[in-house]
Design a protein around this nucleic acid. Structure first.
Lengths: 139, 139
DNA sequence: ATAAATGCAAAGCATTTGCAGTAAA
DNA sequence: TTTACTGCAAATGCTTTGCATTTAT
């Protein structure tokens, strides 16, 4: 089961320095970091940072609709500060996640459209990015 | 990082009764069970069944290309015995996963097509199945 | 003041692994 | 007989939680 979008509770979020640091790291970040990536990056400036705070902030931001949780990598969750409709490409060699601007509009086949109300969709592309493709050719 | 498809090792699989029971349960199953679902179902007949064996079998079948691991549910993996190209729909209310026959062919935007070689793609639809829609109206 | 956030450690789950015994081949 | 599989238990890794303390409002 997953979090229902649009059900942001009316909680006032406190602007703590830890949260601001996480927000700053996330701002415009297109690397789709995991919680650990975020923890490591922010810890450099903030030695007292804890995982609990990272997860707490991530959840708060997700609930507030400012962040999107990605369930692409079977090993761990990744976080995307870009909440606009777009898709992703995962390199099978290096594991990096890339943005794919939505230009593609997908619809349910007519036969199913009557039985489901679709709220959103997400495409995952699997393939190889050029650095990894080149590594293959010249090892 | 994820398992590269098509790299099935040349290991001879043994047809143990446990594996056959798991295979039988999976055969034609469209419920997209989790490892625990499978464990519970097969345990009824097979009291000695262990999780290690379930996971072991699941990996073996996945490596052999007879099974597809789904990374849709953030909580746990689900398994799909249908390895043909198709997509999925997840009900946001009940969490059930439904098959969406591929009829939709998606391509990378031209701008990216030069930088990636795409091996496959998978669409996840989010919405509500009719039972859940009806429950909403009449609670 | 007061409600929420932090940080630590412990707990929770899903999944993996080591290994001795067991059973296909 | 050889090689793989089973099942148990312990270990791992990501994520969550409880709680006393601190901090933003």
């Amino acid at each position: 089961m997953r979090e229902k979008p649009g059900s942001a509770p009316a909680v006032r979020l406190k602007r703590t320095p830890q949260r601001l640091a996480i927000l700053e790291y996330l701002e415009g970040n297109t690397s789709h970091p995991s919680a650990e990536d975020i923890f490591r990056a922010v810890s450099k400036k903030y030695h007292s940072m804890s995982f609990a705070t990272v997860y707490n902030t991530l959840h708060a931001l997700t609930r507030a609709g400012a962040l999107r949780e990605l369930t692409i990598d079977p090993e761990r969750k990744h976080y995307d500060p870009d909440t606009s409709r777009h898709h992703h490409l995962i390199c099978l060699a290096c594991g990096k996640i890339f943005d794919v601007p939505e230009a593609i509009r997908v619809d349910l086949p007519k036969a199913m459209a009557a039985d489901f109300s679709v709220v959103g969709s997400h495409i995952e592309f699997y393939g190889h990015c050029s650095p990894c493709r080149n590594k293959r050719k010249a090892p």
